[in-house]
């Protein structure tokens, strides 16, 4: 069965079983290995992608539910070499350690820091990160970076 969806702006026809987890399609078929299958049960957020602009765990999303939709992965957020504001702020705040959680973290924060989405306070940002686990950093620099992006927002 062939399922058509848009990934990072390109229309793709995927021949796979409808219940194949989206994360496996992205990684194994499309070679987009940014999203990480870490817990495979929707807790860690390392496989987060945007589906029609909504942060979605790609491990629990069967391919068929992405049919006709617009999927954006961490690779699709940027073109060429320049990081987007969330990535630049995380780099500037020296937030990265092992890095495995960051593709998902970046996707969530990209959504969270869009205008009007989240109050620019530590509590609100932390609440917004409830679906993204990081085992290395202890989170605070990630929160600092998110607030910096939100406060610079015009």
């Amino acid at each position: 069965m062939t399922i058509r969806l848009t990934v990072n702006g390109e229309e793709r026809d995927i021949a796979a079983a409808p219940m194949t987890p989206l994360v496996d399609v992205l990684r194994d078929t499309l070679h987009l290995t940014g999203a990480k299958p870490v817990c495979r049960e929707g807790f860690c957020g390392a496989c987060m992608v945007l589906v029609d602009a909504v942060p979605t765990v790609s491990c629990l999303t069967p391919l068929v539910l992405a049919q006709g939709r617009d999927v954006e992965t961490v690779e699709g957020l940027t073109s060429a070499d320049s990081p987007m504001p969330v990535q630049a702020a995380l780099e500037e705040h020296d937030a990265v350690q092992c890095g495995m959680c960051f593709p998902g973290m970046v996707v969530t924060l990209t959504h969270l820091t869009t205008a009007g989405r989240c109050e620019p306070s530590r509590e609100a940002v932390k609440a917004g990160l409830v679906g993204n686990v990081c085992r290395c950093t202890g989170y605070e620099r990630i929160v600092d970076a998110a607030l910096a992006v939100m406060e610079d927002r015009p």
Binding site: L32, T33, A35, K36, V74, P83, E91, V96, G99, P103
Partner: peptide, 20 residues
């Protein structure tokens, strides 16, 4: 406070870990 050179690729999802 020299910045780590692997941060950018990790943030952009380009780093290839063993699982990748």
């Amino acid at each position: 406070n020299f910045r780590r050179r692997d941060a950018r690729d990790k943030l952009m999802g380009r780093t290839r870990y063993t699982i990748d």
